[in-house]
């Protein structure tokens, strides 16, 4: 039995999603920068928003393809970036146990970082309540991502190149890198990745990017084995 009215749940979903969109804004805007910098057709660049619906994977894929990476290398790197979604899927599976099949298929499409955060904060007693809240927050988030990536792509070419806005891409990513470092092991893995990327930069088709990430992951695996 539902304990909330439907409209209050919808409203709660919308108001929970909006502030969480702030961290996604730089990604939306960066997509515009990347699409402009590499001369990717606007609509093609934007199509990654509904098709992939994941900022980091979209930017990784388009940046690497723009830089001249082989399709296989760019696709693998973007998929590795998205590997955390497996974790989200595992940890939210219990919440989806009593849900209808259509919602499990649709809910998976909406499962971005922020939706994972929203869905795992609270233990929902009523599965109908959870479904309404999740759909409301998820579709708000979806609509905002579609709108703001479109704005980013439209505004991108208008900004003069002399502003040096393309530099915002490495700045955003080095910030994300710093946030991902939480102990000496993750720091070591990041440093290995950076050194390996410099050392392997001459490899054809920008294969060095993928190779460096894989080498660093192996070092991480080794460090984890040593810990036990």
């Amino acid at each position: 039995m539902s304990t909330h009215t439907k409209s209050s749940l919808v409203w709660r979903g919308i108001t929970s999603a909006i502030p969480l969109f702030v961290p996604a804004l730089p990604f939306a805007f960066m997509l515009g920068v990347v699409v402009t910098e590499w001369g990717i057709p606007s609509l093609l660049g934007w199509s990654s928003s509904p098709i992939i619906f994941g900022g980091a994977a979209q930017i990784t894929l388009l940046t690497l393809l723009g830089e001249g990476a082989s399709v296989a290398a760019a696709v693998s790197a973007a998929l590795i970036v998205g590997a955390r979604h497996l974790l989200y899927s595992v940890s939210l599976a219990p919440q989806f146990h009593n849900q209808p099949r259509w919602f499990r298929w649709l809910g998976a499409y909406l499962l971005v970082d922020q939706m994972f955060a929203l869905a795992s904060i609270e233990k929902w007693q009523d599965s109908d309540d959870f479904r309404i809240f999740y759909l409301s927050a998820g579709s708000t988030f979806w609509a905002m991502w579609m709108t703001f990536t479109a704005i980013g792509i439209i505004v991108g070419p208008v900004i003069p190149e002399s502003w040096g806005l393309a530099f915002a891409a490495p700045v955003l990513f080095i910030g994300l890198l710093a946030v991902s470092i939480d102990r000496w092991q993750t720091l070591a893995v990041a440093l290995v990745a950076m050194v390996a990327a410099v050392a392997l930069a001459q490899l054809p088709n920008r294969l060095g990017i993928l190779a460096a990430a894989l080498i660093a992951l192996l070092v991480g695996l080794l460090l984890e084995r040593l810990r036990r």
Partner: peptide
């Protein structure tokens, strides 16, 4: 997931982002 695979996932971000920053 086996616990080792779960912990390996924690290294995906520093490994990939470190490599991407250099490539940029």
């Amino acid at each position: 997931f086996p616990p080792l695979a779960l912990r390996l996932l924690e290294y995906v971000a520093p490994a990939v982002l470190g490599s991407l920053v250099i490539s940029m």
